[in-house]
Design a protein around this nucleic acid. Sequence first.
RNA 1: GUCCCGUUCGUUCAGCGGUUAGGACUCAGGAUUUUCAUUCCUGCAACAGGGGUUCGAUUCCCCUACGGGAUACCA
Length: 471
Amino acid sequence: MSVVTRFAPSPTGYVHVGSQRTALYNYIFARQQGGKFILRVEDTDQNRYVEGAVENLLFSLEQLGIEFDAGPGKEDDKGPYFQSQRNDIYNAEIKKLVDNGKAYRCFCTSERLDALRKEQMEKQLPTGYDGKCRNISKEESDEKAKSEKFVIRLKIPTEGLCEFHDLVRHDVKIAWSQVDDQVLVKSDGYPTYHFANVIDDHYMEVTHVIRGEEWLPSVPKHLFLYECFGWTPPQMVHLPLLLNADRSKLSKRQGDVAVEDYLKKGYTPEALNNFLALLGWNPGGKNEIYSMDELIAAFDIHKITKAGAVFDVQKLNWMNAQYIKNMDVDKYLAEARKWLADRKVNEEKLDTALMAVKTSLSTFADIPEKLSVFTGAAADPDAQAQEILDLDSTKQVFEAYVKKVSKLKDLRVDDFKTVMKEVQKDTGVKGKFLWMPVRIGLTGDMHGPELAYIVEYLGKQENIKRISPYI
RNA sequence: GUCCCGUUCGUUCAGCGGUUAGGACUCAGGAUUUUCAUUCCUGCAACAGGGGUUCGAUUCCCCUACGGGAUACCA
């Protein structure tokens, strides 16, 4: 049987990085196994509908290079891939369950349910539905259904143990008495996640359910449904959660959680994928940089970690810097040009400046700031810089420098190096005291990209203009 | 409250009965460089606690503590 995995997000408006990792693992595993990866939109909650959410979801996945084989816009005979369009399927299945007594209509009001829960908490009992409507006769139920609102609940076993195997958690046991009579169909006629999920996974022939750990406690409900239908359940794979620095579930409150946020901040999709893939799984060894193909080759679903992982931006920054440093020049230049913000740049020499700055970026968003050495006026020297400017040797260097530069037609990187050699010869000044004055004279700063690039970018006239005042 | 899951350097991941407990990020120091960065080298830093099992436990079992998740007509 060939592997089928699925990513089944609800369209909430953006893709959470935790979801990205779930999608990634599903995708990687399917590719590795030569299987199929499905995207299914879980939009059964009418109250949570968000305009444009699906488009955003599709766009984010595309940017990340996570390609699905079937899903919205890629329909096949297993579709549709929107749960909101599959109600006929759910209705047919729920009817079977009600007819054979595996599920029942519940007419209880939310007020009664709230009170019940409160009472159970106070008595330190497990919370859950008390089964009031469990044994209403078929006739009475049919009669009430004509005039009253109802939901449909699953008739969960009352005793015994639900045992199952999870690829990450291994053997898990949950007492049936702890499992609630789950609502399968809401009073608006739409299925709940638990129901739609099982039906869809079955008909879409999903073999591996790879999802977040928050679903682990619901597994018995799902397994029982498979049993009621006489279907073979898929392999369960519950991933550890992504955490905030304080180890709570990664949330919006404590920083960015949306994929688009990170993309907007200048992280590359490749770095983001690489970083997330290594949160919860690692092939071992020194290397931490993996392309998607390498991840697919190295991935081992049995070696997924159990404990939650803190999303450490510092490591992401480092990784992203690695990706930028190793990026193909043309690709880098094209991408970098999108990040100039409102910098006024010398279009002709922009590439020179961008290349000079390539190794110092942790994200593309750093570009405007890093470029300021080139594009702005010289900064005011600080005390330490001023000390160097005040040196006698500095004056000599400047005089010789301006003299040499003035003679040149042009001032390219190579010309500059020649000039500096000559200045050294003429003045006898070398090392730090030769180079630093020129740097400070031109930029006002003791730090920055390689001087030769700055010199070339500024050009002959600007070089003379900036140095002359110090003579 | 109840149930489930988890616990190796600050973070992340190795380790799967006998190791000087390893790598990566961060941090500190050094080398190279005209500076920062890059690159390279070195260093700091961990098996939550207590019981077992065993000749021997980071590794297996139990308990405790701590953390997280689930307890919705949300997913």
